[in-house]
Simulated scan of single mutants.
Amino acid sequence: MQDTPPSVPDFTQWPSFPFEGDLHVKQLDEPVPVEPPRRGEGNRECTACNASDEAYIWVGERWRVRAMDRPTGLPMVLILESRSHLDLGDLPNLLAAELGVMTVRLERAIRSLDGVARVHVNRWGDGSAHLHMWFLARPYGRLQLRGTFLSLWDSILPPISEAQWRENLAMVAAWLAEFGGRPLAEPPRIQWQAPSSLTPAPTGGATEEPEEETASVIEAADEIPEAEAAEEPSPDAPEQPAAPEQAGPPERAGTPQQPEAPRQAGAAQQTGQQPQQAGAPDQAGQQLQRAETPKQATESA
């Protein structure tokens, strides 16, 4: 065996190759006489057989689909596993036929996601003896990710958002559930965030108006619309006839109305005057003085 490593292969110059710079080929180790057992072989436990259905996004009678523990660089990475502890070459005819159907069905579900151009299907099988097929989604428009090195780019690209990742998982699970089985992936919860204020922010050149004091709900429910201020009659205008009964002293603004309020309103209508407005006692007092003048003149006569 040659002591010097071979030259760097041509695929390192491909646009899809994720590395550049001064590259070197590692020395190849000597072959071992006996390969170590994979997970699920010999005395090693099988991770897939010990996993519960809650660890998967979709489960059926003979197949299960699981995802990574967290978002990765690709839009979607899923693994199709058989429930039975079998490898690819050990599948009976029924499961072998279903594997083809499940592969096509899962590929279509992943390809239906937004931003997915192609789905790469891989099977290595060097780490586990339990059959598991890899499905890797290539982002649309990322031509540099085409081909053999998509699995490497998955570890290099920044991970997608967890909300988008969970939404994609829920959509794939729902797609598979249309043909049977049980979906376990749920979409992310909507984060409702109400604005702190409904008033638009003032622009730089606009003048800010003083803010009104915010009333509570109870105060707003008990609020009574204010009447317009009574107009003061001109000196040349004829005097109105006196009211049948003398109105009481004007009420102070903010105090509860007395039982005489309806009679005052009626007197104001007969004399042609407008109802008194709370908060303007001076004008109301002047009107009462004018209304008392004809009555006092009659009594003195």
Rank of each mutant, 00 (worst) to 15 (best):
R166Q: 14
E186W: 09
R166G: 05
P6S: 14
I218T: 14
Q191C: 11
F135Y: 01
Q269K: 14
E228K: 08
N43C: 09
T293S: 15
W14P: 09
L176V: 02
L106Q: 04
A280K: 14
A96S: 13
A173S: 04
G272H: 05
A194M: 12
Y56H: 10
L184N: 06
A227K: 12
T271L: 06
A253F: 15
P200R: 07
L95D: 07
E223W: 11
P6F: 11
V25I: 06
S196N: 12
S216G: 13
C49R: 05
P139A: 02
E162V: 14
R290E: 03
R189I: 07
T255H: 08
P187T: 01
I156A: 01
E167L: 13
P6K: 14
R62N: 05
E162P: 09
V116P: 01
E260C: 05
G60N: 01
G21A: 02
A48K: 10
E30H: 12
S52I: 02
P9N: 03
E209T: 05
F17Q: 00
A278N: 10
S128I: 13
G254W: 03
L131Y: 01
S7Y: 06
L145E: 05
T207E: 13
L169F: 04
P15E: 01
R111P: 04
L152A: 08
